[in-house]
Amino acid sequence: MKTLIDYLNAIPVEARDSFAARCGTSFDYLRQVGYGNRACTERLAINLERESGRELVCELLCPDADWAFIRAAPPPGRRRGRARNRTT
């Protein structure tokens, strides 16, 4: 897995602001997170994973969150397992 700084440094200069905007922040803020001067929030970690095509992963960006629980949880309103046909 790439580190955030490695990933950011590989983005072409002309695409950096666009990438940061899609993540909901500025490129300067992303660099601060990458260097450890700012914390990576759960929301930012999710945005970074999505926008990097999973080259960056939440678990490494924001290790204090319980990502194992989140990844295993079904979306609200849905249950795990096979759907049952109910007849009334």
Rank of each mutant, 00 (worst) to 15 (best):
N47T: 11
I11D: 06
R38H: 15
A39S: 13
G81Q: 07
R31V: 12
I70N: 07
R86T: 14
R54T: 15
T3I: 02
Y7V: 05
R80S: 13
G77V: 02
T88G: 12
R82P: 09
P75W: 04
C62I: 02
A65G: 03
R50W: 10
M1S: 11
D6C: 04
V33K: 04
N9P: 01
Q32C: 13
T25H: 04
R71V: 04
D17K: 11
C58G: 11
L4R: 00
V33L: 02
T25N: 04
L30T: 06
T3G: 14
L56Y: 08
L44W: 06
P74E: 10
A21N: 07
Q32H: 12
Y35D: 15
I46Y: 09
C23E: 03
G24E: 09
T88S: 12
A39W: 04
N47G: 09
I11Y: 03
L44V: 12
A73D: 08
P12H: 05
Y7W: 07
P76E: 10
V33C: 11
N37H: 14
A10T: 14
Y35E: 14
Q32K: 12
A83W: 05
A10L: 04
G81A: 08
C62R: 08
P76T: 11
L56S: 06
E14I: 06
V33Q: 07
A72M: 00
A65L: 00
M1A: 11
T41V: 05
L56N: 07
R84L: 13
A45Y: 09
L60Y: 14
E55G: 01
D17Y: 08
P76W: 05
G53S: 07
N9C: 07
A20Q: 03
G81N: 06
N85A: 12
C58Y: 05
I11M: 03
E51M: 01
N85M: 06
A83E: 11
A20I: 02
R50C: 10
I70D: 14
A20W: 00
E59Q: 14
T3A: 10
R82D: 15
A10D: 13
I46T: 14
L56Q: 08
L8D: 08
A45M: 02
S18R: 04
T3Y: 05
A10W: 02
A83S: 13
Y29N: 10
F19I: 03
N37W: 07
F69S: 15
V13T: 12
L30Q: 05
E14Y: 06
N85R: 12
P12S: 04
D6N: 13
T41G: 11
T3N: 07
T87G: 10
F27A: 09
P74M: 05
R43S: 15
A15K: 09
I46W: 10
L30I: 02
P74V: 07
L48Y: 02
L60E: 15
A20H: 01
I70G: 05
